[in-house]
Design a protein around this nucleic acid. Structure first.
Lengths: 343, 343
DNA sequence: CTGAAAGCGCTTACAG
DNA sequence: CTGAAAGCGCTTACAG
């Protein structure tokens, strides 16, 4: 009890009023003590803190946000049916933001523009401070914004939005890494088992493949560049195409993902062709489920999705802090060498 | 302009004051019109709505939540490094909640108890209405709560918390489905390539395997029950163990996941043993990346993770609505038959 | 050093 | 049918 009134904590939980009453100060003073602001006697400050602790006081972020310009929340809009790619991005992003005391609303629109619109609307009502958009897409996506006062960062997704920042892997550079590596181990006839051409990434990787070859003085041979779906099955079928004819056979494969590489590797094994002795292989994604299970284990290009997520978080924080950023930023991939391309 | 004052929308966006001023009513009336509450003249209501639309008014959920008992947000705490399992759950859960106008805060604690504690603390300050905890774990996890006033649902995760609701797949039933199916196609010597024994799920599946066999009058033979890691490599190694000796060979395999099944299938192929003619296979997880790429495609047990996520959402909504639920609920798995166990 | 008061954006009895 | 006022839980000038 304090001055006759019980120190009650209403049905709705303990508020700053309860703390102030218990510490026998005004709520203004309690607020200052709790936030470490203003000039207070050390004694007062400690008393308030002690009472708050005792009562199990938890400040109400909703009330705070009403004053501060910022809600300390951001939205994360995803469209990815391939959770596999977004997961590392989202994980790193969330961690980065959580470290700064920023909470993340997750919204999955599963490629439905109507759901997407509703999500954005709901996020705006929640007064998010920023928005991250991620999605595996064949090509550029329509822009979300502009959202008055809310910066947008696209990650692993590119929008036709010149005012936003886009962070994506450097697909062309990644492909060059792969091909240069194969060249460096002495391969000269490098086939490219590619994904569907409608993907931006596929076209960029093709371009990297061609550039790396031409830099080495090797001209592009369309007969060993093959497009197909993103599956192991297509990887196996591609081997059938490449090795059935009577022409010269490839001595290396660059594959647009690890499933293609795995399929190709299995098909070569079936034909008694040795990897990497007869044919070296480099895949893309560095997906351990594939690379480590294949025999031999597969070299691969890593898109560094965690880095991408982390940098997206850092960029968003910077933008929210008043430092505008825009344009497309391509982050480097890296090469992970395993048995399939050693020696 | 209205009565001399410009209809300005402050730096912080347009508020209900702006709408009220534009519609020439009080903010109380504006509020009622906007919410469809109270008794208003049709004309007034429409005028307010029109002005709100015109000004691009978006109600501030933060302010609303201060009044209503509910913030219309829930927390989602994950600990899953295998994003693969949580993704379908989380996706279905989020969709279910979004349909009810409930937003989801994503928190990944990546198995760090300290991070987990901070996340929970942050969520409480955000005044979440509920919490969902998900994680792939070997065994029961320590309880999060109790959290005053905040119901908790564990999904794909079990806690030593008798006051909470836990939703998990019926592993034992799933295993029985698999084995009964193999029995139904005439197999009698069914090996079980299992995961690590420290997993609750592994012990339960073993029990389902044993029960299904014994119901069919077949006694459990420990020499064809093998534990190992969750990898394709172990699946292949297990085949070496099972088929190298001189004893009778299995005519079917039940594998604790699809990677094991895939590895086993590849190893059988290498030995010239035909699937399903010589050995039929059923895996677990129904993970298309594995089941569809294997030759032949793999039958598998589906844990119906989307259903699990959806039901977790429904349960949480029900509990938040005042209908308490507790205890462990095991949801049925289903069998998906493919070439590896046909005929 | 501390408190009273206004205000963040909204809702909801309560009068009229 | 509409408005004035109190209040949700907190912060922040402004006085004293």
């Amino acid at each position: 009890m304090v001055d006759g009134r019980p120190v009650r904590t209403g049905r709705r939980g303990v508020t700053i009023h309860d703390v102030a009453r218990a510490a026998e100060v005004s709520i203004g003073t309690a607020s200052k003590a709790l936030n470490g602001t203003g000039h207070l006697r050390q004694e007062t400050r400690e008393k308030v803190l002690a009472k708050a602790q005792e009562l199990g006081y938890r400040p109400n972020d909703l009330a705070q946000s009403l004053h501060r310009a910022r809600s300390m929340t951001v939205g994360l809009l995803t469209n990815d049916s391939f959770g596999r790619f977004s997961f590392p991005i989202v994980e790193a992003l969330e961690q980065k933001l959580a470290d700064q005391g920023i909470a993340v609303f997750m919204c999955n629109a599963t490629d439905d523009p109507e759901r997407e619109k509703q999500h954005v609307e709901a996020l705006m009502r929640k007064r998010i401070d920023g928005l991250v958009v991620t999605a595996r897409r064949a090509d550029k996506r329509p822009p979300i914004g502009p959202l008055p006062g809310v910066p947008i960062v696209y990650v692993y997704s590119q929008a036709e939005d010149e005012n936003a920042l886009c962070l994506i892997p450097d697909d062309e550079g990644g492909a060059m890494l792969a091909v240069q590596h194969l060249l460096s181990i002495g391969r000269r006839r490098i086939a490219h088992i590619a994904g569907p051409e409608r993907f931006d990434a596929v076209r960029l990787r093709r371009s990297g493949y061609v550039r790396a070859l031409s830099t080495a003085g090797i001209s592009y041979d369309p007969s060993i560049y093959l497009n197909g779906p993103w599956s192991e099955t297509w990887g196996r079928d591609a081997i059938a195409q490449l090795f059935s004819g009577s022409g010269p056979k490839p001595d290396a494969l660059f594959c647009d993902n690890d499933q293609l590489a795995r399929g190709a590797s299995d098909a070569l094994r079936d034909r008694g062709i040795a990897v990497p002795q007869d044919v070296a292989i480099v895949g893309f994604d560095n997906w351990d489920v594939m690379t480590l299970a294949a025999r031999p284990q597969l070299s691969s290009i890593d898109m560094n999705l965690s880095t991408l997520g982390r940098e997206a978080g850092e960029a968003l924080i910077a933008i929210m802090g008043g430092k505008p950023m825009r344009g497309v930023r391509r982050l480097p991939c890296s090469l992970v060498i395993r048995e399939s391309s050693k020696i």
